[in-house]
Design a protein around this nucleic acid. Structure first.
Length: 587
RNA sequence: CGGGACGUGGCGCAGUCUGGUAGCGCACCUGCUUUGGGAGCAGGGGGUCGGAGGUUCGAAUCCUCUCGUCCCGACCA
């Protein structure tokens, strides 16, 4: 492909509205352009990358016996009403009406249609198992698109759906996907962690996410380097360190006979109260008021911990939101910053849920802080806190895992130290069970003639996120270093002098011979300054560059790998061999 | 949804506070020179200053409303 015939609008300066490295480089390299918030145009280079990623995905999906098809993106509302998601999803779904006033939606995912199809066409256990997939657009009205192509409102996704007669079959389909996904990400050159995840609005029993570590990612995952435990922090279990740093820091931590009130004028935050009272944050109780459904709930974590709202929501089995200042006042009688579990106004019946780390140690348990632990907490009186509060004596909360796992916590499996990493969710897999097949009546007859509801799984991968993750993980200060399997071209020929007849001939014959060997070749024949052409080649990031310049008249060209290493001068006839060698050495 | 910021030629920005009729760099067009790391000289084209309303003799600039975009948080397969 000649560059003069390719539309590749590169840009020298970073776009003003880009933050993430991948966003900047994909815009500058002429891969994508933003059309509207969260809606992107894939330019020729970007589309080639997408096609290559999709090609890898297709090969691996086909390899586990999945079959590709294509589903509509506009659905009548009734299928979504049947599964209850029409009501439960809310504003994230694009909705519209047809001319007859019928409610329609733009698909955010395709469980409903695939299950609808399965319910009509699969009749016998002999038809199972099935794995169906597609590469299709999804529409989600994200509240906040960001990070270029990372979080968008319209995007391509590989989604697959498995249909099995029983749980054992689902387990097999799930395992097959794990195998395929491992190969897909490895081939695409993206490092990933497979972590336990929340099944969220997909519902279902078990779920994993594939997280590509990157600073641009929105997910945080807790990892145990010792035993391999890996989970999204939104559900990661972990063992809190004891508040050891406070040991001996009298008068804190001592259990007096009863809580004692102390004045804390204007000290609301953990840090302010901690400093003012001279008590370590880990010996403070952080009390947060939430509205769960329509009722207020008080959630407690230790002062050095963070509450994870989705853990609270999962425990309460309802959506939660932070209470407004007036709601806090109504529930506790105190201003925000001074609320606590002791001394709540009588009769409110406020539900109090404490994180497990606040549960009193069993008698005789080994602890660096033997005996009851006295905490400081809000007094439910503006400008006052209580010290010497003993959990279980002064108040009786429910206990649940509410805290966000943090770096340094103990691994729930082996007890060693957890680390926390940030990353991009590039894929996920869910065991759905009968969440969709039941309401849509997707059943088959088993060998005894009995009607059985199919057991389903669903599995997603975001090709554009793979591309962005690859850029995030592989770029350098000059531009992108594409993994070889997903680069827009394999070989980038830079012809230094566009009008030099010898160089034209050498470049043309190289282009043709390399293409004949099966390489995708980009031939930069533009009449640009050499400096721009080199800079563009590095920005665009194809694995191997061949420079046709001064040496051409002597039959010599230069070959080098984008990832670094020597620039080798070789005779034109040797070029193909060297290209292969360098390409094979690339990741 | 809460908080913050920004909309000025294609791109990146200055000008706004303190009102006087729009400027810089890059890109683009023409010519000449140049050509292995984002050229030089000369000439040239291109802007409803996001939109609407208002104040004023006069608005990119002040006021009101509105639309768009980004960032932090919340939310989120």
């Amino acid at each position: 492909m000649r560059a003069t015939a390719l539309f590749m609008p590169t840009v020298k300066e970073d776009p003003a509205d880009a933050e993430a490295v991948s966003h900047k480089l994909m815009v500058r390299g002429g891969f994508v352009r933003q059309f509207a918030s969260g809606i992107y145009i894939m330019l020729p280079l970007g589309w080639r990358v997408m096609q290559r990623i999709c090609g890898v995905i297709r090969e691996e999906m086909d390899g586990i016996g999945a079959v590709e098809m294509s589903m509509p993106t506009m659905h009548p509302a009734d299928v979504w009403q049947a599964t209850g998601r029409y009501e439960s999803i809310g504003q994230e779904m694009f909705r519209l009406q047809d001319r007859g006033g019928r409610d329609m939606v733009l698909a955010m995912t395709h469980e409903e249609v695939f299950t609808w199809l399965a319910s009509r066409e699969l009749r016998s256990y002999r038809d199972l198992p099935q794995i169906w997939y597609q590469l299709q657009l999804k529409f989600r009205d994200e509240p906040r698109p960001k990070g270029g192509v990372l979080r968008v409102r319209e995007f391509l996704m590989k989604d697959s759906y498995s249909f099995d007669i029983d749980e054992a079959g689902l387990d097999k389909s799930y395992e097959k996907h794990i195998g395929a996904y491992d190969r897909i990400f490895a081939r695409c050159g993206v490092d990933i962690y497979r972590v336990e995840s929340d099944s969220g609005f997909m519902g279902g029993a078990q779920a994993h996410e594939y997280i590509a570590p990157s600073a641009a990612g929105e997910d945080r995952i807790a990892l145990c380097p010792s035993c391999g435990y890996a989970a999204n922090v939104e559900l990661a279990r972990s063992v809190a360190l004891p508040p050891a740093e406070a040991v001996g820091a009298a008068p804190t931590g001592e259990a007096t006979d009863a809580p004692r009130e102390v004045g804390t004028p204007g000290r609301r935050t953990i840090e302010e109260v901690s400093t003012y009272l001279g008590i370590a944050p880990s010996l403070l109780i952080k009390a947060l008021v939430y509205v769960a459904g329509d009722r207020p709930v008080m959630a407690l974590v230790r002062g050095d911990h963070s509450l994870h709202e989705s853990k609270l929501a999962r425990y309460l089995k309802t959506e939660v939101r932070a209470a407004q200042a007036e709601e806090v006042r109504a529930a506790t009688g105190a201003e925000v910053g001074f609320v606590g579990p002791v001394g709540l106004p009588a009769g409110t019946g406020l539900r109090v849920v404490a994180d497990e780390s606040l549960r009193p140690a069993p008698v005789g348990a080994e602890s660096p802080w033997p005996g009851p632990r006295g905490y400081a907490a809000g007094a439910n009186k503006t400008d006052a806190h209580l010290v010497g509060v003993v959990v279980g004596r002064d108040f009786q909360p429910e206990y649940a895992d509410l805290r966000e796992a943090q770096e340094g916590d103990g691994c729930p499996q082996c007890g060693r130290t957890l680390i926390v990493e940030q990353g991009i969710e590039v894929g996920n897999i869910f065991k759905l069970g009968t969440k969709y097949s039941m309401p849509l009546g997707a059943t088959v007859l088993d060998e005894t003639g009995r009607e059985r509801t199919m057991i389903m799984g669903s599995y997603g991968i975001g090709p554009a996120r793979i591309a962005a993750a690859a850029v995030e993980q592989r770029s350098d200060d000059r531009g992108i270093v594409w993994p070889k399997a997903i680069a827009p071209f394999d070989v980038h020929i830079v012809q230094v002098q566009a009008k030099d007849q010898v160089q034209i001939e050498v470049a043309a014959s190289l282009h043709d011979s390399l293409a004949a060997e099966g390489w995708e070749v980009l031939w930069d024949d533009r009449d640009e300054r050499p400096g721009s052409k080199f800079a563009d080649a590095e920005l665009i990031g194809c694995p191997v560059r061949v420079t046709v310049g001064k040496g051409a008249s002597l039959g010599m060209v230069e070959v080098e790998a984008r990832r670094g290493g020597d620039r080798l001068e070789v005779a034109v006839g040797e070029c193909g061999v060297l290209v292969r060698r360098l390409w094979e050495a690339c990741e």
